[in-house]
């Protein structure tokens, strides 16, 4: 008997159905990879764990704090203390979505199966973006409640209805999405997990350090345009001096994935796979 029994041949396929196929393919890959679950579990543990821990210790130290220390305390920032590391894990998921295909050589199979490389990147971005937005927003809310509950004794705890709280929680989901997509762009540009993660690390941790060493006013001017600072601006309840307006900071934040994915799309299209 022949190996090749008849299969449903799609002579013509609409663009929507075709792109949906690419999205399914990326979803299958992500779901079939154990490290996806491990990383999401790790990110969840860090995000949801650290905020409440810090809240608990703050509450126990509260009676010994000075008035100035109490006035400077930020209950919203405490919620997000675990997200500094969790963001790197979520962003690494974005890097890996493409870098693991380069390290295994699978990328050639992927592009032989779908030669429209930019559409493949778009499908990856959609899947990674959706997961980051969903998980990021869920983690944001899931961390807020226990953190604030533990801050109750300090009298600084925030209710969900407090002005700006919901906006801040949603903004963290958006920030994590932007950083995950930036990771996808960096992974595509460097074609390497180490390169992509190093790029992220630099962008989130090293560049801010270097910029803060610049002479004033450049340290603040440039600093406010960096992703970490933008996260603070978007999730803070009050605008700091020198900060961008909220719409502006959102736009600048979104420029990161747009620019890196855009460059990645150009490189993918033009260069050998």
């Amino acid at each position: 008997m022949s190996m090749l029994t008849a299969t449903a041949r799609l002579a013509t396929v609409g663009p929507a159905a075709w792109f949906k196929g690419l999205i399914s393919a990326e979803t299958v890959k992500l779901r079939a990879t154990r490290s996806t679950y491990a990383m999401l579990t790790g990110a969840t543990a860090l995000a949801v764990g650290i905020g409440p821990l810090v809240a608990k210790s703050t509450a126990s130290r509260w009676p010994h704090l000075t008035a100035a220390e109490r006035a400077g305390f930020d209950p919203m920032a405490t919620t997000f203390r675990g997200f500094e590391i969790a963001q790197l894990i979520i962003a690494t998921l974005g890097v890996l979505a493409v870098s693991s295909e380069y390290s295994t050589g699978l990328i050639r199979t992927t592009f032989a199966a779908a030669p429209q490389r930019r559409a493949v990147l778009a499908a990856k971005a959609l899947v990674i973006g959706a997961i980051a937005l969903l998980i990021g927003t869920a983690l944001s809310f899931a961390t807020f409640f226990p953190t604030q509950a533990l801050l109750d004794p300090t009298g600084t705890s925030l209710a969900l209805g407090h002005p700006g709280v919901v906006r801040a929680l949603l903004a963290m989901g958006v920030y994590l999405t932007a950083i995950a997509l930036t990771g996808l762009g960096l992974g595509t540009l460097t074609r390497s997990t180490a390169g992509g993660v190093a790029g992220l690390f630099g962008l989130v941790f090293l560049v801010p350090g270097a910029v803060s060493a610049l002479p004033a006013p450049w340290n603040v001017r440039i600093g406010t345009w960096l992703p970490g600072d933008l996260a603070g601006q978007l999730t803070g309840l009050h605008l700091q001096a020198g900060a961008l307006s909220r719409p502006a900071s959102l736009i600048v934040l979104l420029l990161y994935p747009i620019v890196f994915l855009g460059l990645a799309a150009i490189r993918l299209h033009r260069q050998d796979a």
Binding site: V28, K29, A32, S35
Partner: peptide, 26 residues
């Protein structure tokens, strides 16, 4: 092209299913 170009953590089924999805194959 290269039989070793596979993601080691995925199953044979998952590997082929991703390709099938991208090409509208059942």
């Amino acid at each position: 092209l290269d039989a070793t170009a596979v993601h080691p953590a995925r199953t044979g089924t998952a590997h082929l299913r991703a390709l099938a999805c991208a090409n509208g194959i059942a």
